[in-house]
Computed example of a mutant assay.
Amino acid sequence: MPSLLLVEDDPSIRMAIEIALTRQGHQVATAATGEEALEMWQSQRPELVVLDVMLPGIDGFEICRRIRRTDQVPIILLTARSDDIDVVVGLESGADDYVVKPVQPRVLDARIRAVLRRHGNGGPDAGDTAVFGDLVVDRAAMTVTRAGEPISLTPTELKLLVELSRRPGQALSRQQLLRLVWDHDYLGDSRLVDACVQRLRAKVELVPSEPQLIRTVRGIGYRLDPPR
């Protein structure tokens, strides 16, 4: 039973989501403020955090940033508007996905399970080892190293790099990446892909502003190139 931390300040929404997720088989702890959320994250170490953006005290963006300093636990944002700048800021802060309010429990449960699958992905079908200069992507162990030093990636960042590494030199559209990485069965939101690529470049590129590995293919998406 996956352990989740639900952070939502509205009591009625918090209770409704908690009941729905519990019925879906999740173990849910709840917090109403940013300060309480950080305390519970540190003491309980949940497998996933469902995080409202607008909170009293410390907001969801800052919580996300603080967690990401030391922990790669999956984070799903709850946001009031899909076209809000909050989505972009949240994704750039390190969130793995987002769900728009009012929350549909089945949608949230599907997103949670998809992120947890990425977090636990590995096993015999994960593939082999891909080498890009001093960057090594071990698809069996689901680890990434540069010059022998491990690189800490979130489950979504790791899944994105693994999928790109399976097809070196091949351009993958944002729609393809949404299906492969996020398990979205619709065209979805390209901001998920773009924000994750930006975070991934910051970790694997020597000069993130001048990427040599993860290339943008204008009008299409991205490809992973071997170093020249």
Rank of each mutant, 00 (worst) to 15 (best):
E92P: 01
S173N: 06
G148N: 05
G133Y: 12
Q72N: 11
R118P: 00
R66V: 03
L164D: 10
W182E: 03
D52M: 07
E205W: 03
A80L: 08
A95L: 05
T156Y: 00
A202S: 13
R65N: 06
Y98D: 00
R117L: 11
V99K: 04
V136F: 05
Q198S: 12
L224P: 08
V87I: 12
L180G: 01
I58H: 00
Y98W: 02
R117T: 07
G123E: 08
V87N: 03
G94L: 06
Q24M: 10
L187D: 15
L91K: 03
G94D: 07
R113L: 13
G122H: 02
V107K: 07
D183G: 13
E157T: 06
S209H: 11
P11W: 05
L78H: 08
E39V: 12
Y222F: 15
A110D: 13
S190D: 14
W182A: 06
I75Y: 02
P11I: 03
E205T: 06
E149F: 01
W182H: 14
T156R: 03
V136Y: 04
D59T: 04
G188V: 01
T70K: 09
L48M: 14
L21P: 05
S43W: 02
S93Y: 13
S152F: 05
M142Y: 14
V53S: 01
L161F: 09
I75A: 01
L178H: 08
L5Y: 07
L4F: 04
M15W: 09
V204M: 03
L116N: 10
V107G: 00
G60H: 14
R191E: 08
V7A: 04
A202L: 12
A171I: 02
I75H: 07
D185G: 04
Q176C: 00
R65H: 04
R45E: 13
V131M: 13
A126I: 00
V100R: 09
R45L: 14
D52V: 01
L78Y: 11
D52H: 04
G133I: 04
C196A: 10
V193S: 09
T129E: 15
A147P: 00
R215A: 09
V87W: 09
G219M: 10
R23F: 08
E39F: 09
L160C: 03
D86G: 10
V99R: 05
P227S: 03
G120Y: 09
K101A: 10
Q176V: 03
A126F: 00
V7G: 02
R66M: 12
